[in-house]
Design a binder for these strands. Structure first.
Lengths: 342, 342
DNA sequence: CTGTTAGCGCTTTCAT
DNA sequence: ATGAAAGCGCTAACAG
């Protein structure tokens, strides 16, 4: 049914050379005369030859495909990450196979110990639910780079921002705009990602630096990093009648939900409560009030992950267990912009 | 470096049977005794055998991979579409390779006439910039399903909502809430996707039905379906001093931008101007005011596209050029909720 | 119901 | 600088 079947051999015949020569041209092997090269390239163009990746992959053990596993690509943060990873991979001549885990431990485990396509050369994985035991259980079937910090003992490469410092920066900023009772939303039940824990550490450390004591009743847990949970968390805080004037939310989505909840209770942002999120999703630039956020450098995160993977691919005994830290910065917007300090 | 090399043959040896038998078990071929089947499955489990997709693909010509090409996965609408396509494909045992075109004609053409991985069995493509000529130029290298309506003469399968009817529904609703001068934002310069044209037709038809005349000065063109362009479009409208009391925006992102622009000019939504968008992105449920929108059934859209592709894959001479229409519905929210009719 | 075997298109020694 | 040929792991046609 299809034209198919423009093989290396067809090109060779058309150009009147051997298969090897065509292969050399395709791979930019130096040992080909200029004249030969152009002649072969012409044949390739005329016949519309495109290499068969399966055959190449079977022979070389490399497919040029990498996997990307995230909870869900429609989550604004992971959508950004996915877009950036695809771009970065493309830069390296790699294509990306995207999988969704929905943060389900079983599916995360599956991704990891791959029933899934054996075809990917490597995997970039953002785990949020799989237990350290599963993560460490067996060596991954392919080179693996984790996105985001994770509770784990074993040797896995990972790339993330410095979540402790990031949270600390958020708290410092809240203190600077006059907050004294800073609640935190995002201590996460049932998650095995270290993100929440580390940000919580940063929060406490930030408070300590400012000479403020930590108050467990200001630390609200959530089931998910979603808008709904952000809103619910605020309900809890308000219901508990603990006073607070600042809010550090572990994702922008939580922050957005929290602001909705605050507004609902007639609590003004930033007037009564100043709010800081994490991630710098697009909506934070446009909601009312616009959202102050701790922004990781997602482009760099993606590029670093891809680069690290490529290194592991190219240099077999690259050590694992390294951590790449990508920079973050505080983006100040209206949700923390007060006319005066207190 | 890696364990590698658990081949079909290794399983066969371990189980003391022939490769064919193992292959039969793997493929659930009926002609295998129950005892044999369990024995082989045990060996597979023990050895941790996973089929080599490259080899299979080389042999059968099928990889179990499909491509998905969208402008950008971080666009909220395409993020949703991507998530849904990945889910739908997964249901059919297919994995998805995601590519981004950024709406660049050259990259769209490239996706189509595939320099790209020859490895995908088929392609789901959401073109917005490629010209009909390029689209028709050559038969696609693999089975192709287009998402969204498109200006094209040739025989390509496509799946989309009925954009004319959808726009008409939007206009009808605006008329019902009392709008008489309904502007439209989204007539798109430089796009070859038919979406904008068809929605414009629907708009005019809706006006005609309501006994309202079309007014070209109420039809604003945009360069992109982005928030910024929505805002700019409103600036233009306001600057032109043409009165309007309703706004049909061709995407939610445009609508969000437009509402920002309106607010900026002290024009109240829905009091002074009622606003309707398209797509039903998440933010529309949470912005203030919440956004009335024409929502395509994205799950069904994705599932239909995947199913259609699978059919083309399985039945070689499936006719092309068919259109699958997915349902849409109007989701009424605050941006069109007025206390009274006019 | 099970075993043998050719070959998918490519890369890559090894000769020349 | 170029050619000939083996074989990557799998599937399916054929034989038993």
């Amino acid at each position: 049914m299809m034209a198919m079947a423009v093989r290396l051999r067809d090109v060779a015949e058309h150009a009147g050379v051997s298969v090897k020569t065509v292969s050399n041209v395709v791979h930019d092997h130096p040992a080909v005369s200029r004249a030969m090269r152009t002649r072969v390239q012409e044949s390739i163009a005329v016949l519309g030859y495109v290499p068969n990746i399966s055959a190449r992959s079977l022979r070389t053990g490399r497919s040029g495909l990498i996997g990307l596993a995230v909870p869900r690509v429609s989550d604004p943060y992971f959508a950004q990450v996915s877009a950036a990873v695809i771009d970065a991979a493309s830069t390296c001549g790699l294509s990306v196979l995207v999988e969704q885990t929905d943060g389900d431990p079983a599916r995360e485990a599956e991704v990891l110990h791959g029933r899934r396509p054996t075809i990917v050369d490597g995997l970039i994985f953002s785990p949020i639910a799989v237990t350290p035991e599963v993560l460490d259980e067996a060596p991954p079937t392919v080179p693996l780079v984790l996105i985001g910090e994770h509770l784990m003992s074993a040797e896995r490469s990972r790339v993330a921002m410095d979540n402790v410092a990031a949270a600390e920066d958020g708290v410092r900023h809240l203190v600077e705009v006059g907050c004294r009772r800073i609640a935190v939303i995002g201590a996460k039940r049932g998650s095995t990602a270290a993100t929440a824990e580390l940000r919580l550490v940063g929060h406490r450390r930030g408070l300590a630096r400012a000479g403020l004591g930590a108050d467990p009743s200001l630390e609200v847990e959530v089931a998910e990093f979603s808008r709904e949970c952000g809103c619910t968390a605020v309900e809890q805080l308000v219901a508990s009648r603990v006073p607070f004037d600042g809010l550090l939310c572990f994702t922008d989505l939580l922050a957005l939900g929290a602001m909705e909840g605050l507004t609902h209770h007639g609590i003004r942002v930033p007037g009564d409560v100043a709010v800081v999120g994490f991630d710098d999703i697009d909506e934070g630039r446009h909601c009312a009030p616009t959202l102050t956020t701790v922004a990781p450098d997602v482009q760099l995160l993606a590029m670093s992950a891809v680069m690290r993977l490529v290194t592991q691919l190219d240099v077999p005994k690259t050590p694992r267990g390294d951590s790449i830290v990508v920079p973050h910065r505080l983006v100040v917007r209206d949700s923390t912009r007060r006319s005066r300090g207190t």
